[in-house]
């Protein structure tokens, strides 16, 4: 395992050096306790301590609006727009989210737009030593510890940042900037201590084993819990739009003013919106808000388990933070646990 040490006094030099190579995106404070990934040019702009950003770093892999085709009266071309970039400061929950999306878009038929962008993004993770707030359930979703999916991974200590170098790309960055020192045994033992302490802080947030959540969902499709959500959900789609693993999209044409040329783009869409499952004839296959909320939960805790053998919830807590109707993921799961006790529990 390769580690490298960056003294805090050199952090700004590092970001400046990295920004000279490619765009650098990092969490930035937006006030009111909120953060967002934005382009930065120096370390002073970066919030090293932050709670999950309003939008997840998904937006760089699958932009909110993305041109997929351009056409004129005599040509049609499939296109991809991309920017080589490095995303600094990705928490472990969001690394897990990106891993989920990688599976979805790498599966056949492959999504080349996603894959081209993915290949142009360098990921630098950042460890959380403590919970961000009461909405997180990362321990339950096993995403509180780094579990791959990054080129470099940073753990912050008082005087220095310890980088885990995971890929050759990461190694190249460390070498090219010339700002790092080699880590020795003391650095590694300090990391081990840090992780040990972390294990005592992060505890399974709900009284259910991770592997049992899928079993719970096998028996709660017709639960009254969903009816209750029908009364509360405003169908604003916030939970979808902030989710690191939601990937539904709409496809829209935008003609230019000549009306003969233009672009086709895809845009994030939300299964919570009224029109999402409506067909042209008018039939709506998920008219009830409760059924739409159920669909969202099943897309996190049941359907992907069948297809990708993992949960598509990272425990980041964004859906709970963004919900005006106070629909909190941990509460909903707790209601389900209470209403549908598992036989072995």
């Amino acid at each position: 395992m390769a580690y490298a040490v960056l003294q805090k006094g050199r952090f700004d030099d590092f970001i400046v050096a990295l920004a000279a190579q490619r765009k650098v995106m990092a969490p930035v404070s937006k006030g009111y306790g909120h953060f967002e990934f934005e382009e930065v040019r120096s370390a002073t702009e970066i919030a090293l301590r932050y709670i999950p950003t309003i939008l997840p770093p998904k937006k760089y892999f699958m932009p909110q609006r993305e041109t997929i085709l351009q056409y004129t009266s005599d040509s049609i071309e499939a296109v991809v727009d991309f920017d080589p970039m490095a995303i600094f400061g990705v928490h472990t929950c969001d690394l897990a989210g990106i891993q989920c999306l990688n599976m979805v878009f790498s599966e056949r038929p492959k999504d080349y737009n996603y894959l081209v962008r993915k290949n142009n993004i360098i990921i630098i993770g950042l460890e959380c030593g403590d919970y961000c707030d009461q909405y997180a359930s990362c321990a339950m979703m096993n995403s509180e510890m780094p579990n791959g999916g990054y080129d470099l991974f940073v753990t912050e200590f008082d005087e220095y940042l310890l980088f885990h170098v995971s890929t050759q790309t990461g190694e190249d960055i460390v070498k090219s900037t010339g700002l790092f020192e080699t880590a020795d045994a003391s650095h590694k033992s300090r990391l081990a201590e840090y992780r040990k302490k972390k294990k005592s802080i992060f505890k399974k947030e709900l009284p259910i084993d991770s592997k049992d959540i899928a079993l719970l969902f096998d028996k709660c499709f017709e639960s009254k819990v969903w009816d209750e959500l029908n009364d509360r959900c405003l169908a604003c789609g916030n939970c979808n739009n902030v989710c690191p693993t939601c990937y539904c999209f709409d496809v829209i044409d935008e003609p230019a003013l000549d009306l003969t040329s233009g672009v086709r783009y895809r845009r994030w869409d939300s299964c919570q919106l009224e029109t999402f499952a409506r067909v042209a004839g008018g039939a709506n296959f998920r008219e009830n808000r409760g059924a739409r909320q159920r669909h969202r939960y099943y897309r996190k805790f049941s359907y992907p388990v069948k297809k990708f053998f993992r949960y598509f919830c990272t425990g980041c807590g964004r859906c709970s933070r963004a919900c005006m109707a106070n629909i909190r993921l941990k509460d909903v799961l707790m209601d389900l646990i209470k209403a549908h006790p598992l036989d072995n529990a």
């Binding site: 309003i54 604003c236 939300s270 009224e274 029109t275």
Partner: peptide
């Protein structure tokens, strides 16, 4: 569009007014 302004607002990464 027959969905609320929140959709476009979130896509733009705005801090929610209610949080302000």
């Amino acid at each position: 569009p027959d969905y609320p302004v929140c959709v476009e607002c979130k896509l733009n990464g705005n801090v929610c007014m209610y949080d302000r």
